[in-house]
């Protein structure tokens, strides 16, 4: 890559960066908060059961269930992201090598691989 071409290409892909930060915020901090509410809901439900408040118990379990379901959904999204990684950025065309002279088909293969 020439110096001018390199200088014109930004070093930070801000578009990808904010998407990654947002996904990390939702998946990372979000799951911690949701899990905390799941535990809190279970505690409230147990307290309600001991005090005989059936409605409150059901409500608390419902909240815990929703939080738990969202946590599981986030994990499933994570595993889906693992299994369906898109292809990486395209490789720049190979430069001529000073030492190695490989077959053209092998060079093209390496350049086209993900």
């Amino acid at each position: 890559m020439t110096i001018l071409a390199a200088a014109s290409t930004p070093l930070i892909d801000w578009s990808a960066l904010w998407r990654i930060a947002l996904a990390a915020l939702i998946g990372g901090a979000g799951i911690v908060i949701l899990f905390g509410f799941l535990l809190y809901g279970v505690k409230v439900a147990n307290q309600a059961k001991s005090e005989g408040h059936e409605g409150r118990r059901i409500g608390a379990y419902f909240v815990s269930g929703v939080c738990g379901a969202i946590c599981v959904a986030l994990v499933v999204v994570g595993i889906y992201a693992m299994a369906h990684k898109p292809k990486s950025k395209p490789t720049p065309p190979p430069k001529s090598a000073a030492v190695y002279k490989p077959a053209a088909s092998r060079t093209e293969l390496v350049a086209s691989l993900p």
Binding site: A83, S88, T91, Y100, V110, A111
Partner: peptide, 27 residues
């Protein structure tokens, strides 16, 4: 986890090292 993704990173240095360097007998 090693079997989950079907796409393999052909070379960890892809795009960083000239691909001509990584093929051929001397490579």
């Amino acid at each position: 986890g090693a079997f989950i993704s079907i796409s393999v990173a052909a070379t960890i240095a892809k795009g960083i090292v000239n691909p001509d360097v990584l093929v051929g007998g001397d490579a």
